[in-house]
Simulated assay, not measured.
Amino acid sequence: MSQVKAGDLNAFKNFFEFFYPKLMALACRFVNDETAKDIVQEIFATYWEQKENIDADNILSYLFKCVQNKCLNYLKHEMIVDEANIRIAEQRIQAISSCPDSNDTLQNLITRDIYEVVESSVKKLPPRCAEAFRLCFFHDLPQKEVAVIMNISLRTVETHIRHAVTFLKTDLHDLLLLILLFYAKK
């Protein structure tokens, strides 16, 4: 460790090779492989840049905590982005639906078809996850209320919603693009 702190690149290379697999194993428990690689490499880069200022008794514990925090921050950010994208799409649909010159019959058909496609995708989720998603997004209930209704913790609701949004984002990717293109042209 003292050699790494002194700036010895060979010592840092050995340090990296020793800890990298352990940190990747931890990061992959939270995020996909590509994101895990980015996070772990960022941790090592930050460690190298701040090596003189880091005074940790147990370096593995310190690095694990850094990776865990970085992964959790990444997941929180992704959840916020996903929820924002869904809200934007909902607002666009609502705005288009409220246009006086729109064809109500066509709008109703499109809305019903979209709902059916989304619902068929939601049915692929685990039952409790799907239930939490429906309560939050179809019934517009706050997550705290969903936790009470489902008799689970708020954190479990958040986990269900994050899992659902991540899955639906992938499963409905083509549909979301089509909706955005369709409504953007109007």
Rank of each mutant, 00 (worst) to 15 (best):
K5A: 07
K5P: 06
K5M: 12
A6S: 15
G7W: 01
D8N: 15
D8T: 02
N10Q: 13
N10C: 02
N14W: 00
F16L: 13
L23C: 05
L26D: 09
A27F: 08
T35A: 14
I39K: 01
V40T: 09
E42C: 13
E42N: 15
F44W: 07
F44I: 08
A45D: 08
Y47Q: 11
Y47N: 04
Q50K: 13
D55W: 00
D55T: 05
A56F: 02
A56T: 04
D57A: 12
I59E: 04
L63S: 05
F64E: 14
N69C: 00
K70G: 00
K76Y: 07
I80R: 07
E83K: 02
A84E: 10
I86Y: 09
A89H: 00
I93S: 09
S98I: 03
S98C: 04
T105P: 00
R112Y: 14
Y115G: 13
V117P: 00
V118E: 04
S121P: 09
P126Q: 04
E131L: 12
F133W: 11
C136F: 01
F138G: 00
H139M: 14
L141C: 05
V146W: 01
M150P: 01
N151Q: 13
R155H: 06
I161N: 05
R162L: 14
H163Q: 11
V165K: 07
F167M: 10
D171N: 13
H173L: 06
L178P: 00
